[in-house]
Nucleic acid binder design. Structure first.
Lengths: 194, 194, 194, 194
DNA sequence: AATGAATGAGGGTTCATTCAT
DNA sequence: TATGAATGAACCCTCATTCAT
């Protein structure tokens, strides 16, 4: 890769990070190209040098966040430990993303509404892969006898839904710390699987 | 109430139902006044005879759906039966709304992003009330010894989150029928509370 | 004239008075048919039974106020007294209208901008007639030797302009009472003519 | 100041001049953004690159004209000569604006009706300053003994009103030339002050 | 690689006007 | 006579997008 290409990639990421910030605050529709550019002391015209259009930028925001979360989850999965220990780590990872990256990590957003035809497939694939990591650990637990589940898929959906929902009501100033919350969630999730 | 007022109320509801359809399909931002009006063979100007502005209309869509769901839940709560029986009914009610009224029932939508200052308070109040109905049944079960929960609030959040999440992946053509799904969900939720 | 016609005329005047109030407060463009009707506990549709359209209503507002002022001025003119005494009375009359009926009496409003082709002629005629009443008294004074003026028309314009301007800065709570103001104005106007 | 800033300022002024033309012809309410843009062979969207909204543009039209007139008046004031000579020049300046810039120079327009809260204060300040320049010359004349006035403020108001009124009836094709008119007006105004 | 400037489509909103009842 | 309801044209404004420089 040439130096100039590297530079472009770096700039792209800068823009993405800025865009993610704005989108987390204002939502996909509420975020404007102008505002995203302003955050970086650029003009909106320049964004089009790096991204084809707004849809593309939004898509890559979602992708970046989701990919990062996926990577962390994969790290969790490959660490030593019982299925329960791994699952607990994954819960912490997911909840952190759900809280810190609100909108861009928001898996509830209807992709067919937000993204165009080319983008839908990769998004769905990524989401499916992300979900499957939870399936992995559940299956592993079942295999080792740690977990029991009549319908593991349903359990995974309950787990994901419950965790995504946190962003709706979590407040840093609330009664519980994030850590306590994660603890409780993990406990209940394990309970579902025992 | 005068006849004319009844008529206007009826028309308002007609519009709301139409708007709810559109919003469920396209989201709050994606829905246009023009499209909503067209669905009713009206012109968008006419909508302003019944609603102050788009924000007002969107707000009332959300309110209507949420109020209806609340009413059904309250009926469930007042019926005879054990806490478990009641909770199972409530789960069915909620899941039905989550699936059928996707966007307008979407409790995840950030109200501070979508609604204006006057609207936020009633929305939050309504949502809080809705959630509290689940608290009621959980507490009732704990009182009768049917349920056990160290942190009932957390359980309620897990329950709500899990159910709201369904709209994300449920497909009528899927492997399970809606009824089976409801059954499984209820089972797992009860398990959390035993 | 039939009774029903009389009734219509009476209602028309009611509407006009209401409209005049609104227009004085909000200006011709700022006044809406809805607001005018609301003041009378009517609906805007009803206004069209009495007036062809908004332009017509606005036109008649202006006409009514101007005609009333004209009548009062004519009364002044026909009273006994020296030209100076008459002119002083007319100044009082005019200033009262300028202050109390702000917008509708506003002779500065460009008629070609506000009124349509049919309306312009009568408006201009009325305004011209109104102005001529001041010419009358000035000429009368010149004839009796009370007044002197090289260009009586110019004087009349100065007089009218000065008086119309009052509405711009007059405040009921100001340093001078309306009566003092009228006194001073009259003094200076007489001075112009001596 | 950077070159780009200069350029933008120049364009802004171009737009303002165009807008002033339209407003003088159609009034503030009658002027549309579309028409203003069309005059410059632009699209209305482009206007929003230079002005926040229509209110802002209208406000700046008024401001520009009033500021220019103020500057000219100040030049008049600082020239050599007796108070009478200065006042005569000022009368000429004012009458020219009143005739040439009709609507935008129209000091009669009720600011509270036309402008928003932020704009009102500067407008009133500017108008007050403009008026005060006439006070200055009157006071100067009184100080030197050239003029006499029991209530100089009233005189100033008569003067301003009389001059603003001109735009109402002046026609280039009339009996008198603009110059004769200015001459007569000045004569009468001086007479008021002697 | 970035920008300034312009565009144009589209959306929300207002409001005078109409018309059946 | 009066109204309720609907219309549609006109307007302001936003914003993603383009393109010459």
């Amino acid at each position: 890769m040439k130096l100039s290409e590297k530079k472009i990639l770096k700039k792209k990421e800068e823009i993405l990070l800025s865009a993610i910030t704005i989108v987390n605050r204002k939502g996909y529709d509420g975020a404007t190209m102008e505002e995203i550019a302003a955050e970086l002391l650029m003009t909106k015209g320049s964004l089009y040098y790096y991204f084809k259009n707004k849809g593309d930028l939004m898509y890559q925001c979602h992708n970046l966040v989701l990919s990062q979360a996926t990577k962390e989850l994969e790290v969790n999965l490959n660490e030593e430990g019982t299925a329960e220990e791994i699952l607990r780590k994954m819960v912490v990872t997911h909840i952190n993303y759900a809280i810190e990256e609100k909108e861009t990590f928001n898996l509830i957003i209807e992709p067919r509404q937000m993204f165009n035809e080319e983008q839908i497939e990769p998004v769905l694939k990524l989401r499916k892969h992300y979900s499957s990591l939870f399936d992995n650990v559940i299956e592993k637990g079942i295999a080792t006898g740690e977990f029991h589940a009549k319908e593991p898929i349903i359990v995974r959906m309950i787990v994901l839904g419950a965790m995504n929902w946190i962003q709706q009501w979590y407040k840093p100033t609330g009664r519980m710390t994030k850590e306590e919350l994660e603890q409780y969630f993990a406990d209940y999730i394990i309970k579902l699987l025992k």
